[in-house]
């Protein structure tokens, strides 16, 4: 029995961790380049879930796109792949652009202000976006349509993995590999790393810092939006304050992994998701948040730079 629970909670934890990892990347990307914690990032996750929901509802509404299209998009494999590709692309691009607009309007004017100022601005953006959804959409939670065919597959005793979990996991791993390759191999990716290591020096190499910042503010929110849609599909519901807890948890994950370090954010996300799920399975569901934050405190005490954070070596 205990082994069943272990396996089940591992599966749940990895799925949850994958979502945390996606969101954590957004925090860490922006922090790495701006040395600023984007507290509005949790709202990218929330807004992404809404845009995904609307796109999905629109594309599966026979009155809007015709019943033939709906049947094609929902009844066979190719259609489903196409449907979800469109949903993720639209939400990712829309929220990516939202991120760029937020940087332009709320953070860039404060570029040379004391560090507290953009932080407060970020909280303002967060409140603004939550209230925008409350005002223009709904204060109640909206159901996320179950278009994705969910089948549970037994893997060990009573433990099972669902097709949705597999879908989320495979997608997350693919995204992480693509992002990691982008940052370590491409010219622009290297410019991003250079900028995060030394902004002025990167400028002296000819890197346009504003372009790099805009890129970080596109990629991070786009990944957050993808996580938001996964979250909607996984829990079957979206609401205006759904970003709060995953946001804080993912920020925790980024800190656990070493804030500013991309692989750290990935690792931190999975570590946190797994530990939380194990706590929920073996202690009590109510303890999962407690355990998550205890881990954060322990990491901050014993490895303040995070698991993959490098201690600052300065040579003069």
């Amino acid at each position: 029995m205990a082994l069943d629970t272990l396996m089940q909670q591992m599966v749940n934890g990895i799925t949850l961790g994958g979502m945390y990892a996606l969101i954590a990347l957004g925090y860490t990307l922006v922090y790495g380049i701006m040395l600023m914690i984007n507290f509005a990032h949790s709202e990218m996750f929330m807004a992404g879930a809404y845009v995904g929901l609307f796109t999905l509802t629109g594309l599966t509404n026979p009155k809007l796109v015709g019943s033939g299209t709906v049947a094609f998009l929902t009844k066979n494999g190719i259609g489903l792949v196409l449907l979800f590709t469109i949903v993720f692309l639209i939400a990712g691009v829309a929220i990516g652009l939202l991120g760029v607009i937020i940087e332009r309007t709320a953070y860039r004017p404060l570029r040379n202000a004391p560090r507290l100022a953009p932080l407060i601005s970020a909280i303002g953006v967060s409140i603004f976006l939550q209230n925008a959804v409350l005002l223009w959409v709904d204060s109640k939670a909206l159901p996320f349509p179950q278009v994705f065919p969910i089948v549970n597959i037994k893997i060990f005793g009573n433990a099972s993995i669902s097709t949705l979990q597999i879908f989320i996991l495979v997608s997350v791993v693919l995204i992480l590999i693509v992002l990691d390759t982008f940052v370590s191999k491409t010219r622009i990716g290297k410019a991003m790393r250079a900028t995060s290591q030394d902004r002025d020096a990167a400028g002296l190499m000819g890197v346009n810092i504003n372009t790099v910042i805009a890129l970080a503010f596109f990629i991070g929110p786009a990944l957050g939006a993808v996580a938001g849609i996964f979250n909607g599909m996984y829990y079957g519901t979206v609401n205006w304050n759904m970003g709060f807890l995953p946001g804080i948890k993912s920020f925790t994950a980024a800190v656990i992994g070493g804030i500013g370090n991309l692989r750290g954010a990935m690792l931190g996300g999975f570590v946190l998701g797994i530990i939380e799920s194990l706590a929920a399975g073996f202690l009590a569901t109510g303890y999962k948040d407690v355990v998550a934050f205890v881990i954060l405190i322990l990491v901050l005490i014993f490895r303040p730079g995070g698991l993959l954070g490098e201690s600052v070596v300065e040579k003069v």
């Binding site: 290297k190 410019a191 250079a194 030394d198 990167a202 070596v313």
Partner: peptide, 19 residues
């Protein structure tokens, strides 16, 4: 000096030729 500490020597040189 302001080299990029977490990039390899070769990557640092590549950054020099960014443009």
């Amino acid at each position: 000096r302001r080299i990029f500490p977490r990039m390899t020597v070769e990557e640092n040189l590549e950054m020099g030729a960014f443009l």
